[in-house]
Write a protein that binds this DNA or RNA. Sequence first.
DNA 1: CATGAATGAGATTTCATTCAT
DNA 2: GATGAATGAAATCTCATTCAT
Lengths: 201, 201, 201, 201
Amino acid sequence: MARPRVNKKQDILQAATGLFAAQGFDGTTTLQISKEAGITEPVIYYHFKGKDDLFTRIIITAFAKFFSQMDTLPSKTETEFEKIENLISLHLDIVKEMPDEIYLAVSTCPSRLKDPEGICRRSVREMRRRLKAYLAGCLEKGIRQGEFHSVPLDATVNLLSALLNGLIRQRGLKLKEVKGVKETAVEFCRRSLVKNAFGHR
Amino acid sequence: MARPRVNKKQDILQAATGLFAAQGFDGTTTLQISKEAGITEPVIYYHFKGKDDLFTRIIITAFAKFFSQMDTLPSKTETEFEKIENLISLHLDIVKEMPDEIYLAVSTCPSRLKDPEGICRRSVREMRRRLKAYLAGCLEKGIRQGEFHSVPLDATVNLLSALLNGLIRQRGLKLKEVKGVKETAVEFCRRSLVKNAFGHR
Amino acid sequence: MARPRVNKKQDILQAATGLFAAQGFDGTTTLQISKEAGITEPVIYYHFKGKDDLFTRIIITAFAKFFSQMDTLPSKTETEFEKIENLISLHLDIVKEMPDEIYLAVSTCPSRLKDPEGICRRSVREMRRRLKAYLAGCLEKGIRQGEFHSVPLDATVNLLSALLNGLIRQRGLKLKEVKGVKETAVEFCRRSLVKNAFGHR
Amino acid sequence: MARPRVNKKQDILQAATGLFAAQGFDGTTTLQISKEAGITEPVIYYHFKGKDDLFTRIIITAFAKFFSQMDTLPSKTETEFEKIENLISLHLDIVKEMPDEIYLAVSTCPSRLKDPEGICRRSVREMRRRLKAYLAGCLEKGIRQGEFHSVPLDATVNLLSALLNGLIRQRGLKLKEVKGVKETAVEFCRRSLVKNAFGHR
DNA sequence: CATGAATGAGATTTCATTCAT
DNA sequence: GATGAATGAAATCTCATTCAT
């Protein structure tokens, strides 16, 4: 009878995500968010502490989702490079899955990294920690087992992080895209890392 | 008696660059800039059209400097890979040369890419155009002459751009740095692109 | 306990009208208006788009009131001159009814007539259109029926408009007033327009 | 050899008159005036006390010119109505002679009439004094000598002032003009004032 | 006389946030 | 839970006016 009790909190989050992504955090007003969400401004303050809190929740949720997907990547694979391949895939797929969130993180976080307690800084730190653990694990094992060339560990982790970050940004910012990004990235890394990469393919 | 003839316009630009880099464009007020520059607020408006103009000038100057350095990269080299190596070096060196400008560009531009006439969008477009021309040139020639593997052109240009962007961002954002970034990046690319990369080194 | 439910929007309009009239539009600040209206500055912006909007509303309302009164002037009268008499009366009476509005229109509009889309220009144009229609109607009919001398139509409409405008301004600007303005104006016009004006009175 | 030493003071006055007329006093900045006059801002302050002073001089000069022309109207004429005719002509001709000055006075003075010591108020007062003296003189004599109908003196002076003011405004504001304004005005008044106006013409 | 540069004072406007109901 | 109305605090920008030279 009553209109289906929609989840206003979710409406607000969605509206905010879209607007933040489209106009930037500072460029978006709470009034716009309320209108987009079909509610009035004070409702935002009923559900959230304020505009900053809104942003925080969005970022937390987005990173949590990413981390959770990262956690489900198979830990047992035939080769170590497969794990790296999976990580590349995850990075590129996640953008398709939550484009606004990624765009928001990619476009807004950089200018907020200065605050050491801010959610951006904390999230990025955690992200790096996880990436490093994941990649260092693969590389170390792969090198030990003779699958990979003997590359410097830290610097290569760093490089792969930079590459992944560059790729996710490229896609997140909706810059013009070329075909075969994922395959090319994978092959580029394979040739560089895997011994006898040329014999197999 | 006469106050040292300082160039206030430069002072303002410098103060603005630092503050924008440290706090973001929106997070910086003209009052802060004026104080940092040791002048009063209206002086900003005497020399510049407004806050946006300040930002525009900074970005224009930074990109111009980068482009000019890119233009002086040697166009004749023994191998094509050397050119790519030079480009990587340039990217990593330029950050050291104008850290605030790069940080500003890297942290503020993403959120301003929506405006198709904005200076960020225009600069990034030009940047991509130049990178693409440079890289596509190297790759094509290198492949034709048998120096490089036969990689897909557009996608590899794209990938290298992403990598360079990731590297510059990593450094520009002053994230923790590891040793040997440049060498690692160069070797990573060499192994992936150059035939017989393993025989020589 | 509850503060008397005053209509703040009306308070603002009233305060603005008075101040604009007394000090001119440019000479009046939003702060003054807010103080006069017993509210804080932002309230103005809650109810109106801005200072210009305030002015626009006042002018629109004033002209609308005038036009509406003009529309209620009797269209059937014994003589055509009576209609002109009614118009003169209306002009002089309206000033008493909304002195500030008239003063504002009379004192501020002239300097804003340049903007072809501004409310002043549009209102004055509409005013002239209506005056012309009204007067030309009377004169034409009066001449045709032999009530009036055969005067040139357009030029006389023009002249009567100038006279009415001069009268309304004189009164609107609160310049010193003499007795019998209305009667004198009516008789002046009657003698000039009506045949045998001297026989009857 | 040197460029002919133009009178910069005059240039400034001229520029200011034009700009004030075109954009209003408050809408015109001293910077605009200086540019229009081909000088720099401080030069204005060398020649004048400030922006207000500029306005004052313009108004004083314009009124002085008008008054001086009024003083040269023939004091001996065959009929008293001729004097009124002359006054009407003067009003309409003066606009052609100094359109910007008149436009400025007509459009800007109304909003400045409140200040009893301001130049506008003083000029308008003087204007009214002179008009009244002139018109009252004509009417009184005309009535005494049987040339005019026996109209109420003060009120008719008032009415004629309003008419003249209305006419000058109409023309000064560059509103659309009809043909035969002057003749129509003269005849309108003649019919109303002069006995046997219909026998003669 | 003239100017490039500067400034004090303030104007309009915006916006996140909060009451009172 | 929700809202219409309100506000404190500030931000950007303007401008007449003045120095130092």
